[in-house]
């Protein structure tokens, strides 16, 4: 099957002459969760901004659902690829949450029935029934971020790009993001994450694309990537703490990957005996 997003040999040079990404090839298919990782300035955001045409490739080609992004308007592409900005203040501005939700569909000029349907789905997904008449600016920052996401999801795009969804969020907010990402996935959306939150990636154990110095240097599952110490060192990334712990505890099963606390706890529960032996060796030597 044709991948939904296809990036072929894309480079992007900003007007000031800075090459932000160079010769990137990437295919994203239906139902995938893809996390784009990399240090600041490695070209993550530039890459994902190509998905809804906010940036057009300097060379190469990006197709989204068989449309060449260079030839389509951003407004049209945005109905396929929803982009949630890092700062919700850039996106939300209306006095009530309800208006925010309807806003995207109004821009799309789709029928009223369809609008109602989409907005209703977003309300259910985000459990916003009680907040519909609230002013987004009166809500706390994690809730406001959620409103930002909901306003994009109300358009019901095929792909949703989340730019740093957990930055500045408390524990509850981060957990909520994880929940939401899983929910988007279940509803058949393709999710693209740009993030520094390794724990989130660990929990998701999704596909990971690593950018380094404007080039794509890795594209694999999170557990595989996080085991590759050399790669992580080049990209200046730190795996989730659990993973690092697992890497240091040499007696753990090498073929397994321990991306979450649960997985490592499970190992300990199953291998109490082995653990005791380890302790004996430790004290004996």
């Amino acid at each position: 099957m044709e991948p939904f997003i296809k990036v072929t040999g894309v480079s992007h040079v900003y007007p000031n002459g800075v090459t932000a990404i160079q010769d990137v090839n990437l295919e994203i298919g239906e139902g995938e969760i893809v996390a784009v990782l990399g240090s600041n300035g490695s070209g993550k955001t530039t890459l994902v901004k190509h998905f809804n045409g906010l940036l057009k490739p300097t060379t190469g080609q990006v197709t989204v659902g068989n449309m060449n992004t260079k030839k389509e308007r951003i407004a049209k592409l945005s109905s396929l690829v929803g982009y949630v900005f890092q700062n919700p203040n850039h996106q939300t501005f209306l006095p009530t949450v309800r208006q925010e939700l309807y806003y995207g569909c109004k821009n799309l000029k789709i029928s009223e029935e369809e609008t109602e349907k989409r907005v209703k789905k977003a309300i259910e997904l985000f459990e916003l029934e009680n907040l519909l008449d609230a002013n987004p600016f009166d809500l706390n920052s994690s809730k406001r971020k959620e409103i930002g996401m909901a306003s994009i999801m109300a358009i019901s795009p095929k792909v949703v790009v989340l730019d740093e969804p957990t930055t500045g969020q408390d524990h509850k907010g981060c957990k909520r993001v994880l929940e939401l990402v899983k929910m988007f996935h279940e509803h058949g959306h393709i999710v693209v994450l740009v993030t520094h939150d390794m724990q989130l990636i660990g929990e998701l154990n999704c596909r990971v694309v690593i950018m380094n110095k404007s080039r794509k240097i890795a594209d694999d599952r999170a557990d595989v990537v996080f085991k590759n110490q050399e790669l992580l060192k080049t990209a200046d990334l730190q795996p989730p703490q659990v993973m690092e712990l697992a890497n240091q505890l040499t007696y753990l099963n090498r073929n397994e990957s321990y991306l979450t606390i649960d997985s490592i706890v499970k190992w300990f529960k199953h291998n109490k005996k082995g653990l005791e032996e380890e302790r004996k060796i430790g004290t004996g030597s």
């Binding site: 809804n52 951003i74 407004a75 945005s78 900005f85 850039h90 996106q91 358009i155």
Partner: peptide, 19 residues
């Protein structure tokens, strides 16, 4: 700079700035 970001953010909400 902020204006540019807002412009992009609103386009991501299907606002057709080239209408």
């Amino acid at each position: 700079r902020e204006a540019k970001i807002v412009m992009e953010a609103q386009q991501a909400r299907c606002l057709d700035v080239k209408a």
